[in-house]
Simulated assay, not measured.
Amino acid sequence: MLGKLLGRLVAGTALVASCAAGAQEPVVVGIANFGPHPALDQSVSGFKQELARLGYVDGKNVRFVYSDANFTPAMIPQILNQIEANKPSVILTVTTPVSQAAITSVSDKRIPLVFVLISDPVAAGLVPNWNQGGPRFVGSASAMDYDAVLEFARQIFPDAKKFGVLYAPGEANDVVAMKSIEGAAKRAGLALQAVSVDSAIDVQQRTQMLSGVDFVYAIGSSLVQSSMPALASVTDRYRIPILSAETELIKKGVVAVSYAASYQVQGAHAARLAAELLKGRKTTDLAPIKPGRKDYAALISRKKFAQLGKPVPAAFEHCNCFVD
C-alpha cells in the first residue's frame, strides 16, 4: 500500500515538473516611442489592442517592454538598447527618428523591426519599395492622401484661396509631406505658403508669417504637433482655423477640424505585421501597409468655429462628426 502511494506521489511530482518544463515564457514585444503624445499613444494603443485580438494578450502570453525618448533625439539609442536588453521577439518603432536610429542601435539583426507613423519608409531608407519589406524593417506607413485632405478642405472652407503649413526641414517625414502637399495644392487650385520651423521655440514667431492665409494645415509632424498650443495661440488671434492631421487636440479646443487616417488603425496595421513576424515570417516576406480612404475620418468643433467667427458649411450639419 505504501509502495503504491509513493509511486503515485513520484508520478504526480514528475507530471508537475513536466508541465513546468513545458510552460512557455511570454513573448517579449518591445515598443520604442519618440515621446508621450496623444497621436503616438493612440498608435501604441491600437497596436496592443490588435495584437490582443490576434491572440497575443498582455500579461498572459506576451509582455510589452516600453520606453520613450521624451522627444529628445540623443536619448533614442539609449531607449533602444534598454529594450534590446530584454531580448524581444519584435520591436515596434514609433516615428521616423526612432525607426532610423534602430537600424544601427539595435545590434541583434535577428530581431525584426516594425515601424509606424512614418510618411515615406522608402525615402527614410527602411524598405526598398512599397511592395516589399526591408532586411530588417516592415511596417504601417502614415502616407497621407493629400488630394483627399485638400478636397475635404475645400468643402469645410469653401471660400479658401490660400493655406499655410509649418514643417520641420530636419524631419524626413516633413520634407516628404511637403513635396506631396505642393502637388496636391496645385491640383486643388489652392495657393500654399510653407514656413519652416527648426525648433519648438520658433513656432509662435514663424506662425505669424501665416497671418494672410485662410486656414492652416497642421501636418503630422512630431515637432509641429507637439507645439500645437503655441501655434494655435497665434492663429486664434488672427481668427484662422486649423485643419489638423491629428485628431486628439480637437477635443481639447485647440483646432477647429481634423481629417486624418486613424492613428489607432495605423497601429492595428502594424500589429498585424508584427503577428506575422512572431509566427516566423521574415520582414522581406511582407509589404508596408498604407492607410486607405476608409481609414480617414473627420472631426469638427462647432465651438471652435464659433470662437473664430466662422460658419460650419450647411453640408456638414447632419454629419456624425461633431465633437461638441
Rank of each mutant, 00 (worst) to 15 (best):
1 M>V: 12
2 L>Y: 04
7 G>E: 07
9 L>K: 07
12 G>E: 10
19 C>L: 14
21 A>V: 12
23 A>W: 09
38 P>R: 09
39 A>Y: 10
44 V>N: 03
46 G>K: 03
50 E>H: 08
56 Y>P: 01
71 F>H: 11
74 A>T: 15
77 P>D: 09
81 N>I: 10
81 N>W: 03
84 E>Q: 15
85 A>P: 06
85 A>C: 03
86 N>D: 13
91 I>C: 02
91 I>T: 09
95 T>W: 05
101 A>W: 04
102 A>S: 10
102 A>C: 01
107 S>L: 11
112 P>S: 12
115 F>W: 02
119 S>E: 10
120 D>N: 15
147 D>H: 13
150 L>Y: 10
154 R>K: 15
161 K>G: 15
169 P>L: 01
172 A>T: 15
175 V>D: 02
175 V>L: 01
176 V>K: 10
180 S>R: 14
181 I>Q: 09
186 K>W: 00
187 R>K: 15
190 L>Y: 03
192 L>M: 06
196 S>R: 11
197 V>Y: 01
202 D>T: 12
203 V>N: 04
207 T>V: 10
208 Q>Y: 12
220 G>L: 07
220 G>P: 05
224 V>F: 05
234 V>N: 07
235 T>H: 03
236 D>F: 02
237 R>N: 13
241 P>C: 08
242 I>L: 00
248 E>D: 14
249 L>Q: 15
251 K>A: 10
261 A>P: 05
264 Q>L: 11
274 A>N: 03
280 G>I: 01
284 T>M: 09
286 L>N: 04
288 P>M: 09
293 R>I: 15
305 F>V: 06
308 L>I: 03
310 K>P: 01
314 A>T: 13
315 A>G: 05
